[in-house]
Design a protein around this nucleic acid. Structure first.
Length: 512
RNA sequence: GGCUCGGUAGCUCAGUGGUAGAGCGGGGGACUCAUAAGCCCUAGGUCGUAGGUUCGAAUCCUACCCGAGUCACCA
């Protein structure tokens, strides 16, 4: 049965500053999903940058640059983050590209034709720093109530365009009731239902006193959020009738951080419906990465810097940590020490050492030549359904579960070595039994390489290469992960250095 | 303040009516192929507090305490 093409997106990242590990987290999760789905069929993975809005304009001005120059330079950091972590996107869209901004204008015109957008007056106390209108009652001493801001606010009265969001409320509620899985995890779903039940107001979608954005006919620019949300379809060529759009929309999975759920699960589907387009299949709101339970923040100086982490532990080890540490969707806490522990124990001790000891014995007892498969194996029968189980985890967006299931095989292989004691079999000349365990180990490693490739593409490929099959990873598990497929006579070569060399504790930093 | 979700072994958590579980850490043991890795054994925790329902509750109800999230036209 052919699956529907798989389209996965990350939020487009706001380029007012540099990336941190939270951005890497979302991108890596999307990448793992995309890499898995590529083994089964057409897959498209989109990420990008959100470059409009007042904060970008201000940051650029502060740096003495035009907004365009500013974003041109910053976007390299974001692309560099993907490169550093081997995040293999199919497309990277910037909202300043004409293919996007032209489509935003088209969107606006379509809505106008349809009567979903109208001219109105927006008035209120406005804080330029927060780009927010505040109710008078919320002001603190006549100033911005945001405790980190507290700037003066000004009274603004503007003629603006409004999107008739409220008229989609009932349809949204029906959609939520009919599709309980469409917003996940459940916590986000419940909160959004509660928001909807509380009622919706129309949305002001233009900014007349701002220039850095997509210009609207008659003046002003598009509110940055609507501009940004549209990237998910403009990148596919919605506006130009590209066949990519026909193939991949609606998205199977849109990953977001839980803080932007409202935009993606209320405003976004309404925008799509206004264009007579279907809403995405699933919006998944993942949790925050914290440091000892606290939100990362530059002022606290507790930021994990993604480039430095990759430097110290290797990109794949950080990828592994992020996907393994907590169930996908919940908050979890990160520290360099935690990454180091997972690297040393899960990756070094369990997996890396398994590969090394297995291949060392193959080398010693069989000259590195993979023996023939006898046709039966206890491990084979016990794990026959593993690829299907791991695949089901991916379908369910249970990325940690996929790793946990795979680790069962790794543990079983380590246990098998101790149970069957190849060194004794070799001494006693029990060739058939020795061949059997050695074959199980090599075949097991081949399976691990396939199953782990979405999470650790580089290390999985290295591991696979040591087996010496000459093939590359990336095939369909349903045909490739059949126990016994590893050919007898294959010349495997133990890696010289371990796959995951142990990383020692850092010496205490010298006092400043 | 309203709403939501949590408070279970040192740590992270699973467990939603019927004799308290997993992983990690800690402790003990046997082995040697291996990155002093792996394997085996080992935790006896008033399941936030106080009531209630029930033959029986970590699991249902009530109140309270504690923590987090959310209630913004803020990435």
């Amino acid at each position: 049965m052919a699956e529907r093409p798989f389209y996965v997106t990350t939020p487009i990242y706001y380029v007012s500053s540099v990336p941190h590990v939270g951005h890497a987290y979302t991108s890596i999760a999307a990448d793992a999903l995309a890499r898995f789905h590529r083994t089964r069929g057409p897959t498209y993975f989109l990420t990008g940058t959100d470059e409009h809005g007042q904060k970008v304009a201000q940051a650029a001005a502060a740096a003495g640059m035009t907004p365009q120059t500013w974003t041109d330079q910053l976007v390299e950091q974001w692309k560099g983050l993907c490169r550093r972590y081997n995040v293999e996107y199919d497309d990277f869209i910037r909202t300043t590209e004409p293919r996007h901004s032209d489509a935003v204008v088209l969107f606006f015109e379509r809505l106008k034709e349809r009567g979903d957008v109208y001219l109105g007056k927006y008035e209120g106390w406005y804080c330029t720093n927060d780009e927010t209108f505040w109710l008078e009652a919320k002001l603190v001493d006549g100033r911005c109530p945001n405790p980190e801001c507290r700037r003066e606010v000004q009274w603004l009265s503007e003629d603006n365009w409004f999107f008739a969001l409220s008229k989609y409320r009932d349809r949204l509620l029906e959609y939520y009731r009919a599709n309980p899985q469409w917003v996940r995890p459940e916590r986000s779903y419940n909160e959004m239902v509660a928001t909807l039940e509380g009622g919706l107001e129309d949305l002001c979608i233009s900014r007349v006193n701002l220039e850095w954005g997509v210009p609207l006919p008659g003046g002003g620019v598009m509110y940055v959020w609507l501009d940004a949300l549209l990237n998910y379809i403009t990148a596919l060529g919605w506006a130009t009738g590209d066949e990519k759009f026909a193939t991949f929309w609606p998205a199977r999975v849109q990953l977001i951080g839980k803080e932007i759920a409202r935009f993606h699960t209320i405003i976004w589907p309404a925008m799509l419906w206004a264009l007579d387009l279907p809403a995405p299949e699933t919006v998944f709101a993942h949790g925050w990465i914290t440091i000892d339970g606290e939100k990362m923040s530059k002022s606290k100086g507790n930021v994990i810097e993604p480039f430095a982490a990759a430097e110290r532990f290797g990109a794949d080890s950080v990828r592994y940590f992020l996907m393994r540490e907590a169930p996908f969707g919940t908050d979890f806490s990160i520290s360099l020490e935690k990454i180091r522990k997972r690297h040393n124990t899960d990756l070094g001790n369990d997996l890396g050492n398994l590969a090394r000891r297995s291949l060392a014995m193959l080398e010693r007892y069989r000259g590195g030549i993979v023996p023939a498969y006898s046709g039966t194996s206890e491990i084979a029968s016990r794990f026959a359904d593993l690829p299907a189980r791991v695949a089901a985890r991916f379908e369910a967006l249970d990325l940690r579960g996929a790793l946990e299931d795979t680790w069962e095989l790794i543990a079983a292989l380590n246990r098998a070595i101790d149970d069957r004691r190849p060194w004794e079999l070799a001494k006693r000349g029990e060739d058939a039994a020795l061949d059997a365990i050695l074959y199980d180990l090599c075949e097991g490693l081949r399976w691990c390489a396939h199953l782990l490739a979405p999470f650790m593409p580089v290390k999985a490929a290295e591991m696979y290469a040591t087996l010496g099959t000459g093939d590359e990873l990336g095939g369909d598990w349903r045909t490739d992960l059949v126990w016994g497929k590893l050919a007898a006579g294959t010349r495997a070569r133990p890696a010289e250095a371990g796959l995951f060399p142990r990383i020692e504790d850092e010496p205490p930093a010298p006092a400043a």
